[in-house]
Write a protein that binds this DNA or RNA. Sequence first.
DNA 1: TCCTCCATGTAACAGGTTACATGATTCC
DNA 2: GGAATCATGTAACCTGTTACATGGAGGA
Lengths: 178, 178
Amino acid sequence: MSLRHAVLGLLSEAPASGYDLLKIFEMSLANVWPATQSQLYGELGKLTDAGLIEVAAEGPRGRKEYRVTEAGLAELRHWIAEVPPNTVPRSDVLLRVFFLGALPADQAVAYLRSLARDAENDLAHLRSLVPHVECQDDNLSVYGRLALEWGLRASELRREWAEWAEEQIRSLNVTPRD
Amino acid sequence: MSLRHAVLGLLSEAPASGYDLLKIFEMSLANVWPATQSQLYGELGKLTDAGLIEVAAEGPRGRKEYRVTEAGLAELRHWIAEVPPNTVPRSDVLLRVFFLGALPADQAVAYLRSLARDAENDLAHLRSLVPHVECQDDNLSVYGRLALEWGLRASELRREWAEWAEEQIRSLNVTPRD
DNA sequence: TCCTCCATGTAACAGGTTACATGATTCC
DNA sequence: GGAATCATGTAACCTGTTACATGGAGGA
């Protein structure tokens, strides 16, 4: 149930329409909590029914601008501070690593190398976002920078780990029978 | 669709029943790809229908021992080596970080501190698994060690990042008006 | 006029969680 | 005999993805 809190969080910064929110999801939250258009509009309806947000104004093309209510803000704060983070994040990459034994050793090594490359690419991409986020000054950007730093560190970790893992597997296979 | 490959992967190491697999999921894969009992039995049925696994033997209490077929093994290898890892892992922790601005500064700092503590606990837990995995020698353990190392590094990262982030927010608030 | 962008909504499906339901075997 | 464990299955519900569907407004 975190999409609902993502929406509350965004609306707590500034009122916005579903369409606006969609853009923000694509820009800022794409790497943290992606959401689709259909999901978003559904959630806006549910949040309105629950009284956590309300329509602040109606615009041209049927545009509805939402804002968070007091109850919504309270719910947001409660969620951040008191609801325990729930799920183990599933990683299909790590799952593949578990089963690398099903591949011939050279392919396993190649796979780990490709992970290192992917991490390097992600790192480059995140680095390209740094200047863009750095010049902004709203709440979302201040904390967005923290999130971005996490991403940078995590990408480096992936690259370093993949290189280390490749070496591990290599050393296992160099001395197969002693 | 990774649960299916998790099942194929486990069965490629050794034949097992749904019940056996459930235990393995709870032990080895709990931190990588958790699965529930009902999901597992459903998937076993679908995999059998698809011809990727088959019933190798039937035991006492209606026990059905499955083994992977040639087609299943081919599918597993294909998935590991050629299917691109799909989704951005959603992180509800990082999502909370994005919206920390909705909290008073002291609560935001407290939250980051609690993240550091959580990371420290996870680290301790993973470290306790090290000796257990180290003495095993099957394929799953060899590659499981790689996955465990990832977990260890990731937990350290989380702790270090949380400490860094706390310092960042602290320094923002020490000098509010200059 | 036509294209692009703004803007919302719904339907079908896949994957995952929780809960319920049932029964056989083994061990004490 | 009773408890713990082995063992499987199903139903309801929630979340998320993909695709379809519709139409207004503004600019070239």
